[in-house]
Amino acid sequence: MNENNTILVIDDELQIRRLLEITLSASGYKIIHSSNGKDGLIDAASHHPSLIILDLGLPDIDGQEVLSKLKEWYDKPVIVLSVRDSEEDIIKALDNGANDYLTKPFRSGELLARIRAALRYKPVKENEPVLEFETLIIDLPNRTVKKDGELLKLTSTEFSLLALLAKNQGRVLTHQYILKEVWGYSYTEQTQYLRVFVAQLRKKIENNPSKPVLLVTESGIGYRFGK
């Protein structure tokens, strides 16, 4: 059994499940689906899917609770589906360990891209000290960054920010999480620091800082590094 190909869909809407089954099967994934949180948790435990797509509005258990329970033992990616205009729910889900999110209605192409990115995602290991993104090379132990072979001058905060984002490439990091990791607990409300440093960093690492492709803004939520 190719473990890397099974996706569990937990959603109470039959039509969404059917649509996902058709779309994902066509792309070569194997689909299991559950219509509520309880079954979802059981299916996750018995099938060990390589990725879970979780709807936040479930009939029996709150999606956030399902997510927390899953994350106690499940170490593979979870992509959260939610209705629009619920930034707070999305942030909470990401803080609860979700890798990515999509708002309904979504485009299938977008969903497939997110699934591919999430499946690619592997936590950076100690023996992987150098990260490469096209022409950008980040040397973690030496705290240096090279772009097109040239050494970039980064401040220590800029480097910490870049390293954090790069280590979590493809994953959405919330503002609060980044602030906490880079600046510390007492700075989680100081989004202006983050904005200024992101702008500075973009000027140094992006080819066109006003149309960033590496350091991407997730509106109202946070940032994502790379595709």
Partner: peptide
């Protein structure tokens, strides 16, 4: 949402460039 007065404005610092890009 507007009619029911349920709009809550969540103000935060933003780079206006991000808005235009989005």
């Amino acid at each position: 949402r507007l009619e029911s007065g349920r709009i809550t404005v969540r103000l935060d610092w933003y780079d206006i460039n991000d808005l235009f890009n989005k």
